[in-house]
Design a binder for these strands. Structure first.
Lengths: 226, 226
DNA sequence: CGTGGCTTTGAAACATTTCAATCATCGTGG
DNA sequence: CCACGATGATTGAAATGTTTCAAAGCCACG
């Protein structure tokens, strides 16, 4: 983990324009103003499971993954966070999941307390509320995906989600097949097969295993069946 | 739906003592004070999917279920709510799921606005926050159950959860096998088989299909594998 | 006592996983 | 620059778990 500098360099996230789909609240730049800017190398841990959760994080560039392990070693992926996304806001004292850098990434970090001093309690409250609500919504959607969707539908939903977030024609998969599998509640082999299958029917096209483009949006949405 | 009376009869929930495991906040009796007390017959709808969500609900007696349907008719159960539980608090404008009375039940209902006038904004905010946090926690746990648990583990977890909430030796299942199945992401047949199987190995004992008792708590917890 | 709804059980079909092998990609060192 | 090994992805075949379809059992209710 590399600390670049703190409490200055207040430029907002450069790598990617703000997500168009999501309503960006006024608190969006709170962190940019007083946060500490840090970079993490691929696979580096940002925080660990069980650690104290009094910091708030925002992805500037790169992708972050939260995950936890069950007693018997099964991994669960909480979610993937993209530039502009806030993460690490817990409802309790400690982090229930660990966060890792999926790619090299830049993250703004701030203490809740420092934020309160800097921008006032209300705005911090509002930010925490927003982050929590978003967490709940993600969780619900994830749930829906897992309860009654087939392997194919899950993979289709996932790719559709990625495609919606990406701005360009070709979409990059920041995560490995294993990450996808753990997120979707499948095995890597099944994920791989479904990807191949979706490509076979002409819905998507993979240039490499980490890059694809949607060839038939309508069909993809049908297959996502949400 | 039967309206008994409103804005008086401020006795708190009589049927069951407050959940011991959960920290009961000071806002616990807010609703009892100014809420409207209503009864719903089994299978009656309390609110519908898409309806405006400016009311807050608390179960006094009976059990409530939230559910929604996907486009192709698959039902998803959100959760089951027991006496003392708050439900119907949404993060957006409308209810994402419908709520139905699983059994005959009594529910306290209040307008958010009325609550604010009666007890002040902070306490209402606190209650909404608590309800949202609990929702998120339930959702996460539910997720964990679905991602990487076998049918047997899911059913074991579910029975374990019920047993923990119940105070007596024998536990009543308020919900049908279909409800369990939709909650656990399984079919009724599979649920039934797993129940039989758990009984076969002596972990639980079913007196009827709606009543059971735990015979081997340790084994049940092992099988729940959470 | 019979009917209807829910639950259980059985057998076959199906989807996904597991195990195993092959294939690609990429960085390293000769 | 190419061969090499390492890592991750794909593919195949068999095994497994869950679902589907079908039938029987149970219980409550009229």
């Amino acid at each position: 983990m590399t600390l670049i500098h703190a409490f200055d360099d207040v430029r907002p996230a450069p790598t990617r324009p703000a997500q168009p789909a999501r309503p960006v609240a006024a608190n969006d730049d709170i962190l940019a103003g007083i946060g500490v800017r840090m970079t993490f190398a691929k696979d580096e841990e940002i925080y660990g499971q069980g650690e104290d959760a009094d910091l708030v994080y925002r992805v500037v560039s790169g992708v972050v993954r939260t995950s936890s392990f069950t007693a018997d070693g099964r991994r669960q992926i909480g979610d993937f966070y993209y530039p502009g996304d806030t993460f690490g806001v817990e409802t309790g004292e400690a982090h229930l999941m660990a966060a890792e850098a999926l790619t090299d990434c830049v993250v703004m970090i701030a203490k809740r307390k420092a934020l309160r001093l800097a921008v006032g309690d209300e705005r911090v409250q509002a930010m925490i509320w927003d982050a929590t609500v978003r967490e709940l919504e993600r969780s619900r959607e994830h749930l829906l995906l897992l309860v009654r969707k087939t392997a194919c539908e899950r993979v289709a939903s996932f790719l559709k989600g990625l495609a919606e977030r990406a701005e360009g024609e070709t979409v990059e998969l920041a995560m490995s097949r294993q990450d996808m599998a753990d997120y979707l509640g499948l095995t890597i082999e099944t994920v791989s097969r479904m990807v191949t299958q979706l490509q076979g029917v002409g819905v998507v096209e993979f240039k490499s295993c980490r890059h694809f483009r949607v060839r038939d949006r309508a069909a993809l949405e049908t297959m996502a069946a949400s």
